[in-house]
Amino acid sequence: MEKIIRFIYKSALYLWLFICGTFFIYYYFLYIAHNGIVDIFSYAPTSVIDFSIDFKQQPVTINYSYKVNQKKYSGAQEVAVEVAEEIQNTEITILYNKTFPMISEIKDISGNSSKLNECIWKMGLTFIGFLFAFLILKFADHEKWIGVYARGEYKSRKQGEQK
C-alpha cells in the first residue's frame, strides 16, 4: 500500500509541475505573439462574421469568429461589464496576427480588458502554482506525508533523527 501511495504522491507533484510549467510557457508565447515585449508580429484588421456577448458569467466573455484567407477562425476575449456594454452597440473590428491567424484580439480594447493583461495574469498564476509545487517537492517532508496517507502515522523523519 505504501508503494502505491508513494507513486500517487510523487506522480501528483510531477503532474502539477508539468501542467503549471506547460501553461506558463503557453501564456508566455501568447504574450509574445500579442507583441507584449516588442513589436515582432504585425496585425491586420478584419471584419467579424459572428459576434456574441455572454453576460451570464463574470468577467463577461465576448465570442467572435472571423475569416482570413477563406478559413474561418474563432476567438474569445474576457472583458469587464462596462467594456462589454460599450461594445454591444458598436461594430467591432478584429485584429489578427498575420503570422499566426488564429491569434486575435478585439481592436480598441486596452487596459485591464486587453489580451496582454489577460496573458500577464495567467502567467502570474501559473508561475505561483509552479513555484508552490516546486517548494513542496524540494522542502516538504515527503516520508511524513506518505506515512500519514499509507499507515495513518503522524511521525516525521526529523523527529526520529532527534531521538
Rank of each mutant, 00 (worst) to 15 (best):
G36Q: 01
E161V: 10
L116I: 07
L15P: 06
K56C: 15
G111N: 02
K122D: 14
Y149A: 08
V81W: 14
A76F: 15
T61L: 12
G160Q: 14
E118P: 12
S74A: 12
T126S: 05
R151P: 07
V81P: 14
S114C: 03
I53H: 01
F132A: 12
Y73L: 05
S156H: 07
E153G: 06
S110D: 14
I103Y: 10
I87F: 06
E86S: 13
F24E: 01
I53G: 02
V68Y: 03
T22I: 11
I109A: 00
I5N: 00
V48L: 07
S42Y: 11
Y154H: 14
G147I: 02
A44H: 10
T93E: 09
T126K: 02
S113G: 06
Y9D: 00
S104I: 03
Y28P: 05
F139Q: 06
I5Y: 00
L13Q: 06
S156D: 09
M102A: 15
I32F: 07
Y26N: 08
I62G: 00
I25C: 09
F130S: 03
Y9R: 01
S156A: 09
N117S: 14
E2P: 01
Q162S: 14
K56M: 14
S42W: 11
V148T: 12
E78P: 08
G152Y: 02
Q70H: 13
N69H: 09
G75R: 02
G129Y: 02
F127S: 04
I136Q: 08
M102Y: 12
Q58D: 14
C119H: 00
T93C: 06
M102P: 13
I37K: 08
A33F: 09
S113Y: 03
F23H: 03
E118C: 15
L13F: 06
D108P: 06
G152S: 05
F7D: 01
I49N: 11
K163A: 12
V83Y: 01
N97G: 04
